Simulated scan of single mutants.
Amino acid sequence: MLKTAIEMDRAAMILRLLGDKTRLTMVKILDSHDCCVCEFVEIFKVSQPSISQHLRKLKDVGLVKEERRGQWIFYSVNKSNEYYPFVSQILSQLPDQDDKLNELEKQGTRITCC
């Protein structure tokens, strides 16, 4: 097996994780933008605990990392994660999600926590 290949059970686990549309969209956004929970609350129109649960699942496998900035925590894709090459191939097939962040900026709700 090639060193860059991913085991079948690991691939299935990642695909199950990304099989949720909200998590898949979050990862696509986080691949190119750092975001905080409050931005995802605005984008998906769901509760903060729901967003935090999605992020926790992504963090548990190391796909997403967090960085504290003052009292706020920002999330981004962990591009050094062993699964990132696999996930990156999936993300490259998906439409850009910048419109969601642009809409937040137009509404003045981008990074409302800061």
Score class of each variant (00 low, 15 high):
100 K>L: 09
70 G>S: 10
70 G>I: 14
85 P>H: 07
16 R>L: 09
26 M>K: 04
87 V>L: 11
106 K>C: 02
107 Q>F: 14
33 H>Y: 15
64 V>L: 05
19 G>P: 00
9 D>P: 00
45 K>G: 06
19 G>I: 09
44 F>Y: 07
79 K>S: 03
24 L>A: 04
73 I>K: 14
11 A>T: 05
92 S>Y: 08
54 H>F: 07
26 M>C: 07
26 M>G: 07
32 S>V: 03
10 R>E: 15
59 K>A: 03
83 Y>S: 09
15 L>W: 04
39 E>T: 08
31 D>P: 12
14 I>T: 02
105 E>L: 10
109 T>P: 00
52 S>H: 05
78 N>W: 02
21 K>M: 10
29 I>Q: 11
91 L>F: 01
106 K>N: 00
77 V>Y: 07
93 Q>D: 09
112 T>K: 08
95 P>G: 11
61 V>C: 13
3 K>G: 15
9 D>M: 08
65 K>L: 01
62 G>W: 06
77 V>A: 03
93 Q>K: 11
32 S>Q: 12
36 C>L: 02
41 V>R: 06
104 L>E: 00
61 V>T: 13
4 T>S: 14
36 C>I: 14
2 L>G: 10
39 E>K: 02
46 V>T: 13
75 Y>P: 15
27 V>G: 07
76 S>Q: 05
108 G>Y: 14
33 H>C: 00
11 A>Q: 14
111 I>A: 14
93 Q>P: 00
112 T>G: 07
41 V>N: 08
110 R>A: 06
23 R>F: 06
16 R>K: 13
42 E>V: 11
1 M>N: 12
92 S>R: 15
82 E>S: 15
83 Y>G: 05
15 L>Q: 01
16 R>T: 13
104 L>Q: 00
79 K>W: 01
86 F>R: 07
75 Y>M: 05
59 K>C: 06
15 L>A: 08
90 I>C: 10
36 C>M: 09
8 M>C: 12
113 C>V: 14
100 K>C: 00
40 F>S: 13
62 G>F: 11
69 R>N: 10
41 V>S: 14
106 K>I: 05
92 S>W: 11
39 E>V: 10
14 I>F: 00
103 E>T: 03
20 D>Q: 08
69 R>Q: 11
91 L>V: 02
17 L>G: 02
108 G>C: 09
14 I>V: 10
105 E>N: 01
45 K>Y: 02
28 K>I: 04
8 M>I: 15
53 Q>C: 10
37 V>D: 12
30 L>C: 04
7 E>T: 13
81 N>P: 00
97 Q>N: 02
9 D>V: 15
86 F>S: 05
19 G>K: 00
99 D>W: 09
4 T>K: 03
107 Q>E: 13
97 Q>S: 02
38 C>E: 09
3 K>T: 13
6 I>M: 12
44 F>G: 08
107 Q>P: 08
77 V>M: 12
61 V>S: 05
9 D>W: 09
23 R>A: 00
43 I>Y: 10
77 V>N: 03
112 T>E: 05
69 R>C: 02
72 W>F: 13
80 S>R: 07
